[in-house]
Amino acid sequence: MALEFLKDNFVVTKLDYLASWCRKYSLFPMPFATACCGIELMATGASKHDISRFGAEAFRFSPRQCDLMIVAGRVVMKMVPVMQRIWQQMPEPKWCISMGACASSGGVFDTYAVVQGIDRFIPVDIYVPGCPPRPEQLLQGIIDLQEKIANTGTIFGTEFGKRNVYEGPRPLSKFLSPDQSVQAPANFRSSTRTI
């Protein structure tokens, strides 16, 4: 019987599960490497740590071809519009890993130029601590992300649509007294076009 013959070749599953399963093992990272963490990101891709064991070795430098943005390193005033633009250029579904203390919280650089955590400006899925995180730690971050994709992913990406509020910490400028703060012109048009 035909049915008899096909017996071993059927898998019954949810479509969401299948899509997530495909996605989680074929992440295409966009290395948004700005500083020291970028070197560790390169080391993660190199032979000793070998990120390709987790299906995320195909670094693409064009945001159009990526679905995982790894922000490795501190992001400063001049870079924020660039980062947002790259994030917006990436096609759905997409995730973001904030690698290192600087990207997650400003790290040791609590100065006038460094933003205190990229999650104030773009949505972040996984934070990897460390200064710099060891390559193993970044790999752990990728495994965690895979788990997150497996648990929450849907085929049409509806889980992203539900995240419609600001997810970052409270704005820092609230903590400044009014006489200490000044509204600088934020239209940094020479850095990038405004979004």
Partner: peptide
Amino acid sequence: GFLHSGFEKLGEHLDFNQYVTIVDRMNYI
């Protein structure tokens, strides 16, 4: 200037032994 993070300003606020952690991150290779 896409990575200008105020190292020199920090140098005016951290003491000689603390600033070494910042200097580290200057030429990171």
